[in-house]
């Protein structure tokens, strides 16, 4: 899957595109874990994500745990309506920092 990245105020911002499902979650997981290992603060901008499966959320949880273990910071922002629903159904909105906008996330994670 296509995952672009850029640095903004010292934060690594990842922008995955499309569906994070069983086919694409291994790649999403690898990118996420590498990013958390190399950066203190990571933001995943979900504005281009149409769907995320349990496997994708599992990758996000692994990255969150890895980030916490090294006292890093990780957040997600700009969830599409469907992805926002999935975060609520899965209760991920209770265990991962969710921001309405990328700007708000960057201000908080900086």
């Amino acid at each position: 899957m296509e995952i672009s990245e850029q640095h903004d105020n010292g934060i690594l911002v990842l922008r995955p595109l499309g569906r994070i499902n069983n086919d694409t979650s291994p790649e999403f997981q690898t990118r996420l874990l590498n990013s958390v290992a190399s950066s203190e603060a990571v933001l995943i901008d979900f504005s281009g994500v149409e769907y995320i499966s349990s496997a994708g959320l599992r990758a996000l949880m692994m990255a969150s745990k890895q980030s916490k273990a090294k006292n890093g910071r990780l957040g997600v922002a700009q969830l599409s309506p469907v992805v926002k629903e999935i975060f609520e159904i899965s209760r991920f909105s209770l265990v991962v920092q969710v921001f309405e906008s990328a700007a708000a996330a960057i201000a908080a994670l900086r």
Partner: peptide
């Protein structure tokens, strides 16, 4: 469980 609970 919820998925978040199950994997955290």
């Amino acid at each position: 469980y919820s998925l978040a609970d199950q994997i955290s």
